[in-house]
Design a protein around this nucleic acid. Structure first.
Lengths: 136, 136
DNA sequence: TTGCGTGCAAAGGTTTTGCATGGCA
DNA sequence: TGCCATGCAAAACCTTTGCACGCAA
């Protein structure tokens, strides 16, 4: 998925590389900043937000709203096209689980046909409790 | 559903009455404040947040995170027990549509059995575009 | 050289907290 | 009367914006 940026900077590449290296992990802007600070390669907060916004528009990164304390989370969606899979977020451990099953696709058709609702997969998150945390 | 509050104040009653009178409508804290200001019965911002938090803990009000600009929305869930219905939010007009159909309950069973995921209906919102906005 | 990307600082908005006062039981 | 709820103000927090400088092409 090609970036729309005109210039390709080192900072931009570092950011995207980091997100790509942690697929399925959701990061807040603050966490991303803390990571690069720890790497001795600090990136300004404004830059992080600006680049993340680009990646989201570009489709290679997805933005979910509801991290700790009303903050946005960003995660690399993989090379799958948007709309081919779904996200479940565990409210206990915070993990995001990717689902790619027919039942969800059937539900999509049902929502459209019976309720006239065009579902946006990319933005929808199923909240609940994952397997591991239920046992614990 | 009994409140956990020790004292029953007029302010508290007004707030809950207003939310109960508008089931399914999601209000931001700012909108609620504006409403009571317009009613010549202003309520302090801090009080609104404190009472809303109580109602949410109490289970009679639900909190969704994603109004305009990352702000929280609150809505009266009706007298239905949590888990008997679902919410779809239109990304265009902002309306929240309530669904209560078997397909969603079947999906719930599927998620639990096949994926070990215990779905939290109250917190999950389906984002998409509603019937009316698709036509427009 | 041109113009986008960056960082710093400041502003914007939402939500939380401290403290003195008012109201319920 | 005791204690909780309220309101005001200030703070904390996340995010956005303005501006000058640095860097990619």
């Amino acid at each position: 998925m090609a970036e729309k940026t005109l210039y390709r900077t080192r900072t931009q590449k570092s950011l995207l590389d980091y997100l790509k290296a942690t697929p399925g992990i959701h990061h807040t802007a603050a966490e991303i900043k803390a990571y690069f600070d720890a790497q001795q390669q600090p990136i300004g907060t404004a830059t992080i937000y600006r680049q993340l916004e680009r990646f989201v528009e570009d489709g290679c990164i997805q933005k979910y709203t509801l991290g700790p304390g009303n903050c946005a989370c960003y995660t690399f969606s993989g090379d799958q096209l948007p709309g081919t899979h779904f996200h479940c977020k565990c409210e206990v451990c915070g993990r995001i689980i990717h689902l790619d099953c027919d039942e969800l696709r059937e539900l999509n058709e049902h929502l459209q046909k019976e309720h006239g609702f065009s579902w946006d997969f990319g933005r929808t998150v199923f909240y609940g409790i994952c397997d591991q945390c239920q046992k614990a």
